[in-house]
Design a protein around this nucleic acid. Sequence first.
DNA 1: CTACAGTGTGGGAGCGCTCCCACAGCTGGG
DNA 2: CCCAGCTGTGGGAGCGCTCCCACACTGTAG
Lengths: 354, 354
Amino acid sequence: MSPTAQRPDALHPGAGGRATARPTLEEVAALAGVGRGTVSRVINGSPRVSAKAREAVQNAIAELGYVPNRAARTLVTSRTDSIALVVPEAETRLFSEPYFSDIISGVSAELAETDMQLLLILVRNQRERDRLSAYLTAQRVDGVLVVSVHRDDPLPGLLESLEIPSVLAGRRGDLEPLSYVHADNAGGARMAVRHLLRRGCTQVATLTGPLDMEVAQARLGGYRRALEEAGHAYDEDLVGLADFTEEGGRVAMRELLDRRPELDGVFCASDVMAAGAMQVLRAAGRRIPDDVAVIGFDDSIVARHTDPPMTSVRQPIEEMGRTMARLLLDEIHERGRARRQVVLATELIVRDSA
Amino acid sequence: MSPTAQRPDALHPGAGGRATARPTLEEVAALAGVGRGTVSRVINGSPRVSAKAREAVQNAIAELGYVPNRAARTLVTSRTDSIALVVPEAETRLFSEPYFSDIISGVSAELAETDMQLLLILVRNQRERDRLSAYLTAQRVDGVLVVSVHRDDPLPGLLESLEIPSVLAGRRGDLEPLSYVHADNAGGARMAVRHLLRRGCTQVATLTGPLDMEVAQARLGGYRRALEEAGHAYDEDLVGLADFTEEGGRVAMRELLDRRPELDGVFCASDVMAAGAMQVLRAAGRRIPDDVAVIGFDDSIVARHTDPPMTSVRQPIEEMGRTMARLLLDEIHERGRARRQVVLATELIVRDSA
DNA sequence: CTACAGTGTGGGAGCGCTCCCACAGCTGGG
DNA sequence: CCCAGCTGTGGGAGCGCTCCCACACTGTAG
């Protein structure tokens, strides 16, 4: 314990040592020799302050290590300077896992510049859903991000009627009134199927997600469109209804093989479904990609580790998070601005499975 | 718009229709025919209230749909009723991804019973680290959870000196003064290596994580201990230093094969390293598990999808999150209670790679 | 009958801000 | 010369709570 030993104490340079009470606006004002109002104006960036006063205040703030008390500010402005990221828990498990952390990472990156706080709210049952309603009604956040939506999810409706600024990842349907950001699911699917056709597949099947989700619908739509553009008739027997999960992919793939043993390509609406499908195909003695080419969706971590490594459609998830945050901040600051929609491009990552 | 059309409006049953301003304590008091103090006592569960008054207040609260204003409460109590989950971003990428969501899921589950809010703070560079310091010093949270720690991470030291209740996932070293929760890394590693020995391996190598992390050290320690217990000398040539990543695993595995071509088992301190190692082994013409048996750590999603599916050590991550939250709440409510440590058991999930 | 604990209660003070009104000082036009 | 009209400024009021003091109103002991 030498006197020069550095201690992580660097935050009260002015104060004479131990952690005293936090300085208030009034103390800053006293030190700067101005009134409370002037200090407040400086902090909030008002132009109506003389250069001299502004400098005095800034020095005082630095000297005291002043940080505004958020609660006091919230009490009078009824802004909270915080937004909620709501995750319907059921979805988290379905989506490829990195999705979740990447969205958060993007949102957080965008928020880092502001002094907004990010509140995380997982909703896993009706009770928690009710709590969330009460929470939102009590105006405890300035805005809401929703990570994934089912067609019949009541949450977006609630947000709409409460008129809370909000942005969804994905949408409920074509005419989603709330702002949302999503990847070009249809385009990605179309790109994948075209890739299969180009490499010579003539019997291209698909494994879908749960069709009460717009993402699943959109990916199926892209599949269908690519086939039709290439002059193939849409054949329902080539469509395997599944649920984004590995086990669902296995089951649907088996049925598909029974119905259409001659199929030579499969576009899967998620990587884990594709992984399941690949297991089934291999068990059935099909070589990948020679007998059957397989493409997944998400470009998640499993895509790199299947055997062979999987060709997959990548969506810019972190960018989606960033965009969501940006839209939300806009909506919060310019109340009543029109809702906005953003579609981000997807990309085909070609590996060895197709 | 029929008059009976249901609107999601159920939260102001007493109010005569449109969203009016939120009711205050005072209005509740007026309606219940009591004073402000009595209402406050009822809300905060004080015993010094007559049954009659309590009932009147509860009715008034229900009728008005009253929800206390958090900011006002915070202003006077200087409790914030929120805790921060801090994620040093660099780590997130290293750890197998589900780790992150599972910890959050556990924490959130535990918090659901309380009215604590969960704040998420990602720290990815020095600037954000500074902001966090200011944030914590300004007492904007009642407690802090830290998701993963390096030996030289300054954050735990800061938390210690600010005396903020905090719980770490993992620890810096043997004598970690802060509360922490971690999996039995050493035990899991030992279990894995014993499994390899039991199946007949005689030359068991290991791939380590970065040794400035205690987890990596502990897993290496478990490896060493199992070998010594079985009467094998510790052989440095069988230890490949890596960094938890897939590429790191590949590089270290190649070196290991050069040094000790006769090795017949590898314990890897993470699944993704094991996946990288398996690629290298296969490329070198080794059959898994017949020529070389491989075990990973984390039992993450990749473990199920490698070829062959990987035997791996599972840690109870969600349970870790839950426990962290529980310890933190205790520490917040009983200020100055002794720091606590919790170690949770790991489990060997046997698949086909060993 | 007075004294005196012990309950339950009302309401003032005050947490640290922002908002806004009043006012001082300084132009410049009539 | 006065009176607008600008800046820039100080400080009162008040946001919605909790804390705590003072004050009934009981009941029991002296």
